[in-house]
Design a protein around this nucleic acid. Structure first.
Length: 139
DNA sequence: GCCAACGTTGGC
DNA sequence: GCCAACGTTGGC
């Protein structure tokens, strides 16, 4: 079981919209970055991820689950790009902001802090536990 | 709205 | 294969 982090600008695709898709989930399409794509290719069904609002909020707001493994991205005909599907699992009791992560011991190496432009990131087991604790939810 | 960081493209 | 130009992301 691996952990991940998905970034989205809430003006484009928000947590509320993700929740509205329910258990069926939604294609995480539109990613045009090789590193992000490779991360999605490494995902398995049942992997969990944080849902992060970039630009507006700048905070982790919920937990999602991978519900379909990487497949061609329907938003393009370019065969280079594929993506997974994710579904909302539960919101954090308390959103965890980027600022919180920057000052939290143990999160210094988190991609969210160091590699701000990567839109789909791996999260370590330890980082997962820390952010869940900060967010007031069970890991 | 600005700009730094970074990724991609294309000329050579 | 190098690198300058350009476009995009995302924090501030």
């Amino acid at each position: 079981m691996a952990y991940w982090l998905f970034k989205s600008e809430p003006d484009t695709w928000s947590w509320d919209q993700q929740v509205a898709k329910g258990a069926a989930g939604e294609e995480w399409g539109g990613v045009r970055n090789y590193q992000a794509r490779n991360n999605m290719r490494a995902m398995k069904i049942g992997d969990l991820g944080f849902f992060y609002h970039s630009n507006v909020g700048k905070e982790v707001v919920g937990i999602v689950e991978v519900c379909a493994e990487s497949a061609p991205d329907s938003t393009t005909d370019d065969p280079r790009w594929d993506c997974v599907h994710i579904r909302a699992v539960r919101p954090l009791a308390r959103p965890v902001t980027l600022e919180d992560c920057k000052v939290e011991p143990g999160l210094e190496k988190m991609a969210l802090v160091n590699n701000t432009r990567l839109s789909v990131q791996p999260v370590t087991d330890e980082e997962w536990r820390i952010v869940c604790r900060m967010g007031g939810v069970e890991p």
